[in-house]
Design a protein around this nucleic acid. Structure first.
Length: 618
DNA sequence: GCCGGGGTAAACACCT
DNA sequence: CAGGTGTTTACCCCGG
């Protein structure tokens, strides 16, 4: 009839952009950059329609940076025994060094010129670290500082890096300089001197940012003291009353765990027990080394991942396979590099702060294992069918999607289903579905007419969505049976394929995500023990299901990944945790891997039940 | 080339 | 009447 309108099809739409388009690693990078920009702007749109908590932006940004491992996380990462051992071991070394250098004990004298000198050195240090960081970024080993001036900064990357400007000797020197300083009197000062904490949280992205611990020391650039803001901006959505070293009512200082009733008590404890002395200094160094080693490990694992992907022909054309890790962190490179590496050779998508990455489409999986599938000119659809189950993908990257204007690699149907299933009663009004979309995906905060229409279209089109009349109106529910029926499970229909894929990857089993998806879809074959044992393949094996399991909700509610150990160490290092509304994000115990490797699947309870013991990758 | 799935656009009906 | 909700159709792209 009159439908003749869009002859060119929806493709004409500049924003929507249906299918084609350049997708690939570049897209990811662009996305990352966009994220960075958003972070810098801080006035992230995400908090608008999304109704996200105010902390969202900073935190989410912070999440983008895997480097941001706080001491608590470190503790969580390392098992207590490990940590303890490491601490002891390294402390011994440290002490030796300290002794050798005759690191003076902290004097009781007030902070004075020496402190200032220390601060200056600290600044220099930070600057050097920054430089180093840039190098790392180029190598794809480290994420960009999450944000500009306002953004939270990923902590310790610079400090922790092996080649970081802060070498032990530097530190010692610094500490020497400060030795004369009196133990800080207030938490702020303490924090300032606490390299472990301060450095980690304030990051080094800006010298100004590194404002000296001593609060009232104006910086050259005219910036006023910002010890307080800095703290707020720390990656860990710290609430005003929180402290990076304080969580779950106990001191998170490595090896401490002293219980503290409240923050005040903790501060006292911090000042008395962890004042600026040789012991604390040594511990700080140990922490630095811990971080350093983790980073090294991360680099190795990233490299391995790249090698794996290369082997699997995931991105043959990638010029510098190892310098552009897929993880968000490492890829958070400059937009410039983006253009260079665009595999598809398509014109670069706009990279301005306001320009959506959307055109690239495939960006989403950046961080997750599904990257494999999205790399290169793979259509979204493809990733849909062949990749990560929404559940895990979302769970892993939902922070990313939440803040990056990147189109999620899921079908509307699967997204709608996810939205509905996430609710307790498994039903949503249309408007609530809309809200979920905008809340969960930055992408859906624009072009509302388009995607809302699509949502309605899908609701009506698919039998799996059932409209139920309600008192207030109508709500939509999901008919799981229909949903499963909806698409003939490609995997289900082809066990052979599954096997081939698995064997082809050289893994004996499916990863957790895949398992979860399988379990969810009641695919018998997949529940077979033989299929689910190892897990290394990680996201690579997400096959046949685009459905969204409920893992997302868990992530949302918990604010962090479940403590399950990640089998895939070499997966993407990005730790994309969602900040819990109330609890400290890092207060929850997280396994080293889970924390350090963002791509860990976060199965929900169901998944847990189904899941087999996770084995360490070999 | 056909077919089906998915995305987009739009027309249209109905309701508030 | 305007806007939201639903339904349906048409068309496009893509992969099998």
């Amino acid at each position: 009839t009159t439908v003749g309108g869009p002859i060119a099809g929806g493709r004409a739409s500049p924003e929507g952009g249906g299918g084609g388009g350049g997708r690939g690693a570049k897209a990811l990078q662009v996305a990352r950059q966009f994220l960075l920009q958003q972070a810098a702007g801080l006035s992230s749109p995400s908090s608008n329609e999304g109704k996200q908590p105010a902390v969202q932006v900073p935190v989410s940004v912070a999440m983008m940076s895997p480097q941001m491992i706080t001491p608590q996380q470190m503790q969580q990462i390392l098992s207590p025994p490990q940590l303890q051992a490491l601490l002891q071991q390294q402390q011994a070394i440290m002490l030796q060094q300290v002794t050798a250098h005759r690191l003076p004990f902290v004097s009781q004298q007030p902070l004075g010129n020496k402190q200032l000198a220390f601060q200056q050195q600290l600044l220099q240090m930070q600057q050097l670290q920054q430089q180093h960081l840039l190098n790392l970024q180029r190598q794809g080993l480290v994420s960009l500082p999450a944000a500009g001036a306002a953004g939270p900064c990923p902590p310790l990357m610079a400090v922790s890096h092996p080649h970081a400007a802060v070498c032990p000797s530097d530190l010692q020197q610094l500490w020497k300089e400060v030795t004369a300083a009196q133990p800080v009197e207030d938490s702020i000062k303490q924090e300032g001197l606490d390299l472990t904490t301060n450095t980690s949280n304030s990051t080094s992205f800006s010298a100004a940012k590194v404002s000296p611990p001593i609060s009232h020391h104006p910086l050259p650039n005219g910036q006023s003291t910002m010890h307080t803001p800095r703290r707020d901006s720390s990656s860990h959505e710290e609430t005003p009353g929180s402290h990076p070293l304080y969580g779950h009512g106990e001191c998170k200082w490595p090896g401490c765990e002293t219980l503290c009733e409240d923050l005040g008590q903790f501060v006292k404890h911090l000042n008395t027990e962890h004042a600026l002395d040789d012991r604390s200094t040594a511990q700080c160094r140990v922490q630095m080394q811990v971080v350093q080693q983790l980073e090294i490990q991360l680099a190795k694992e990233s490299e391995r991942l790249q090698a794996m992907m290369a082997h699997l022909h995931m991105r043959p054309s990638e010029p510098k396979p190892f310098s552009q890790p897929l993880n968000l962190v490492s890829s958070a490179t400059l937009s410039k590099s983006t253009s260079d590496t665009f595999p598809d050779g398509l014109p670069h998508p706009p990279t301005s702060a306001t320009a959506p990455i959307t055109p690239l489409r495939q960006g989403p999986s950046v961080i997750s294992s599904s990257t494999l599938h999205s790399v290169g000119p793979i259509r979204r659809r493809n990733s849909e069918k062949f990749c990560t189950p929404i559940s895990s993908e979302l769970a892993q990257n939902h922070e990313f999607y939440k803040n990056a204007d990147v189109r999620p690699p899921f079908t509307y149907a699967s997204l709608i289903r996810q939205a509905i299933l996430e609710t307790p009663d498994r039903q949503l009004t249309l408007n609530e579905i809309y809200n979920w979309f905008t809340r969960m995906f930055a992408y859906f905060r624009r072009n509302t007419a388009t995607w809302k229409n699509a949502v309605r279209h899908n609701l009506s089109l698919h039998k799996c969505f059932v409209r139920v009349e309600n008192v207030k109106g109508a709500v939509w529910t999901v008919d799981e049976h229909e949903y499963q029926k909806r698409r003939p499970p490609k995997m289900t229909g082809s066990p052979t394929l599954v096997k081939n894929m698995i064997s082809g990857l050289g893994y004996g089993a499916l990863n957790a995500s895949y398992q979860a998806a399988l379990a969810e879809s009641s695919f018998p074959l997949l529940n077979s023990p033989t299929m689910i044992n190892t897990s290394s393949a990680s996201g690579m094996l997400h096959v046949g299901h685009d459905d969204v399991s409920s893992t997302v909700e868990q992530v949302n509610s918990n604010g962090s990944s479940s403590p399950r150990l990640s089998p895939q160490q070499y997966s993407h290092p990005v730790h994309v945790k969602e900040e819990p509304a109330e609890a400290e994000d890092d207060s929850r115990p997280v396994s080293l891997l889970a924390t350090a490797t963002q791509n860990v699947t976060i199965p929900d309870d169901r998944d847990l039940e189904e899941e087999l013991p996770v084995e360490d990758l070999s």
